[in-house]
Nucleic acid binder design. Structure first.
Length: 555
DNA sequence: AATAAATGGCACC
DNA sequence: TGGTGCCCCTTTAT
């Protein structure tokens, strides 16, 4: 109740006194309309801008006409009076004139949505005709034996084990665990920097700022050298970086002539490595797939048009190297045979209602497909051998924000041999003891059940980037500029002595720190972007602080 | 404390 | 089909 966000303390009242036309006649009403049409509309514009609706009370008096303008509260979403959308305390009230913010159907709000999280998470099973398709005959024999019969118990990393607040200077865009060193986490950000964090030694923070000039969209470790990392960026290049030295080279540059305007600037989004074929696959914002020979690190073949618009995700099948999955802004996820890559030559097109943020084969058998779309649905195809016209299940889930945030992507748990547990950040908040928090959801994708909703009162920002560890019971999260490592409660073992040191805050503002520290910090100096030196910081323990409970809303 | 900016998708013409 | 305006539970810095 005490929260005053988007709320006026008092209803403003403006009284405008003005000289009336001395020739005012007896036909008052008409004259008023005729005399002040322009000024009235000006006032209205201003009032509407201020969030109010105008009401004119014109009192007739001889000589002077005072006009009282009352500003009535209107809904900030639909601009209609009578209701107000926005936070009441830590609870958000939807605009009732809009379709449900969660499932997008009209007639109810998120509060009363049948798919609302508290009722067990929405699930809409589709009819699943298990007829065969063309993939079947080619690949089934290789893939089928990998599907395990028994579902293991879930282990949910649900407690913040350690964190770096404000690790990056812009929001986190992607995360990647080191393939062999269990405590190394790679993080990319909106500014093009790549962080290497050993979360066993919380205080050591390295950020390389010389690799890309704008956002990193995907990172992959080299299959043959653990120290080397490929990165795809909106600057149109693929970086190849030695994490030990920070020395980086550009393997592909789609903008060799520099900036020629926004319509021609190429950006790289989706990336994956097909190690069997020895090729790095990247895709751009115009729908083209590019390939780099992994051994020679040279470009190979011609770009191939695989989508009509931006390709945001590429995923190679973990078992069958001939299969490639792509997804993008043209509302499709597509399955390709690597041997027959040509425009329009996909094996299957999986239709979605909105942009597809991600599409992944299941991690061990490679026979299931998981997609995240901006229509607030997570879709699962249980078998690529079945009929793929419709998904096996659609799970209604809030993740449709498409601006200011890194796109949400539901990710498989690579350790779940039954290939059902997935993790995905949630957009809309819930009121948890007076705080508006955005949990990270664990969902059993085989039945749509919400297995766990993970949150911490210290994390008040949305957490769209999440990655489960390939071997350990660890979840890594990127929320705004911060990184979090979660472990299961019993394993998080809060050591009281070390408790203070597990969550640290990076001093981030170069302007406040002055030149001396600016050199090595994650500063905002874009001129450094293409310089050869890497930026490597060792955090000073004295800089570290424990987090304090941040924005807790009053009730 | 109030405000602006960054910024992506999509409907509409 | 390309340009323009609008969408609207963000986050951050000033």
């Amino acid at each position: 109740m005490g929260l005053t966000r988007n709320k006026r303390k008092t209803d403003p009242e403006i009284v405008i006194a003005r000289d009336t036309d001395s020739e005012l006649s007896s036909s008052e009403e008409e004259d008023e309309e005729a005399n002040y049409p322009s000024s009235e509309s000006d006032e209205e514009d201003e009032a509407v801008k201020n969030g109010g609706k105008i009401e004119l009370e014109k009192k007739n008096a001889k000589g002077k006409t005072p006009i009282t303008v009352k500003l009535q509260k209107v809904c900030k979403v639909c601009k209609q009076p009578g209701h107000e959308a926005g936070f009441k305390g830590a609870t958000y009230i939807d605009c009732p004139m809009k379709p449900c913010y969660l499932c997008k159907m009209p007639g109810h709000t998120t509060m009363s949505c049948p798919h609302r999280i508290v009722t067990g998470h929405g699930i809409v099973p589709s009819s699943h005709r298990n007829t065969k398709n063309s993939i079947d005959f080619v690949f089934k024999r290789q893939l089928q034996p990998r599907i395990p019969p028994i579902k293991p118990q879930y282990v949910i990393p649900d407690q913040v084990h350690c964190a770096v607040i404000r690790y990056h200077s812009r929001r986190v865009t992607c995360l990647e665990f080191h393939p062999t060193r269990n405590n190394i986490l790679l993080s990319g950000d909106k500014k093009g920097q790549i962080g290497v964090w050993d979360f066993a030694k919380v205080y050591e923070k390295s950020v390389y700022g010389n690799i890309h000039s704008v956002q990193v969209n995907n990172m992959r470790f080299s299959p043959t050298n653990d120290d080397m990392v490929y990165s795809a960026s909106s600057d149109g290049t693929v970086g190849y970086t030695d994490l030990e030295t920070g020395i980086s080279s550009s393997l592909l540059n789609l903008n060799p002539d520099g900036w020629q305007g926004a319509t021609s600037w190429k950006m790289l989004y989706g990336m994956d490595i097909n190690s069997e074929k020895g090729v790095v696959l990247v895709a751009d914002n115009f729908g083209f797939l590019h390939m780099i020979d992994h051994r020679s690190n040279n470009r190979t073949g011609e770009p191939i048009l695989i989508h009509k618009q931006k390709v945001v995700g590429l995923d190679c099948n973990p078992v069958q190297p001939e299969l490639l999955l792509s997804c993008g802004n043209d509302h499709f996820a597509r399955i390709w045979d690597m041997r027959k890559l040509q425009p329009g030559g996909s094996l299957n097109d999986l239709a979605h209602k909105r942009v597809v943020n991600s599409a992944y084969f299941s991690p061990s058998s490679g026979t299931k497909i998981l997609t995240t779309s901006q229509d607030n649905r997570i879709r699962i195809w249980d078998s690529i051998f079945g009929n793929l016209d419709l998904p096996s299940r659609e799970i209604v889930h809030s993740h449709d924000f498409n601006r200011h945030l890194t796109p949400f992507k539901a990710e498989w748990d690579p350790k779940d041999t039954s290939e059902s547990l997935i993790v995905v950040g949630r957009y809309i908040s819930e009121n948890y003891n007076g705080a508006a928090l955005h949990p990270i959801d664990f969902i059993d994708s085989s039945n749509g059940q919400l297995v766990a909703e993970v949150m911490d009162p210290n994390i008040t920002t949305i957490t769209p980037v999440n990655k489960l560890h390939p071997r350990d019971d660890v979840l890594a999260s990127g929320s705004s500029r911060s990184l979090f490592i979660w472990r299961p409660q019993e394993k998080a073992e809060i050591d009281e002595e070390k408790k203070d040191k597990k969550i640290i805050i990076c001093s981030s503002d170069s302007k406040k720190k002055g030149k001396k520290q600016k050199r090595g910090s994650d500063d905002d100096d874009d001129d450094d972007m293409f310089s050869s030196k890497g930026k490597n910081i060792k955090m000073n323990k004295s800089q570290a602080k424990t987090t304090k409970s941040t924005r807790k809303t009053k009730t």
